[in-house]
């Protein structure tokens, strides 16, 4: 499989971190970074990672099924994650979630028709003291309010127009 030079460099760097015979260790980080480029974990990627890390495709498949950040379905350009775990729940996380689903017309792990935004209700993202939080891709947005969330979604949608 061919990746962008940047991703390829990253994958090789990851691969080099583990001792000989232990390249299986690279499976998860490699999938993470490759997924960022592809927008999902494809069968082709599974085979590629299996081959690079000297394991069977089934062994990679087992991992993909296990970790919640590895997605076998296409994610949006912006993967918007709303935390509704306790600390965020106490601070209005659930309202944010309701608002987002209503505004975008999609639900948990769904993607907008234009492929721009996918949505996920996530478990504790580690921003409890600055709750509620919404994560756009890997970017944290703390002390979220419905107004700030709307601004975020506006800016995502505007960026494309």
């Amino acid at each position: 499989m061919t990746f962008t030079p940047e991703t390829e460099k990253r994958l090789q760097d990851i691969w080099s971190r583990y001792p000989a015979g232990r390249k299986r260790s690279a499976v998860i980080p490699m999938l993470m970074y490759a997924q960022d480029e592809l927008g999902m974990v494809t069968q082709e990627l599974i085979a590629e990672v299996a081959q690079r890390c000297e394991v069977s495709p089934l062994q990679v498949e087992e991992v993909v099924g296990y970790y919640s950040m590895l997605n076998k379905q296409k994610m949006g350009k912006h993967h918007v994650q709303v935390c509704t775990n306790i600390a965020c729940l106490l601070m209005g996380g659930e309202e944010l979630w309701q608002h987002t689903t209503k505004r975008l017309g999609i639900g948990h792990k769904q993607i907008t028709a234009d492929g721009l935004i996918s949505l996920e209700e996530v478990e504790c993202a580690g921003a409890c003291s600055w709750a509620p939080c919404v994560v756009d891709g890997y970017e944290y947005h703390h002390h979220m309010t419905i107004e700030k969330l709307d601004q975020l979604l506006d800016s995502i949608q505007k960026k494309v127009q």
Partner: peptide, 20 residues
């Protein structure tokens, strides 16, 4: 042979075959 593995997590866990 290693044709069987485990996929998904928690209560959704399943046995998975090697050919998809």
């Amino acid at each position: 042979v290693g044709a069987l593995g485990i996929t998904n997590r928690g209560v959704l866990s399943e046995i998975a075959p090697n050919g998809g």
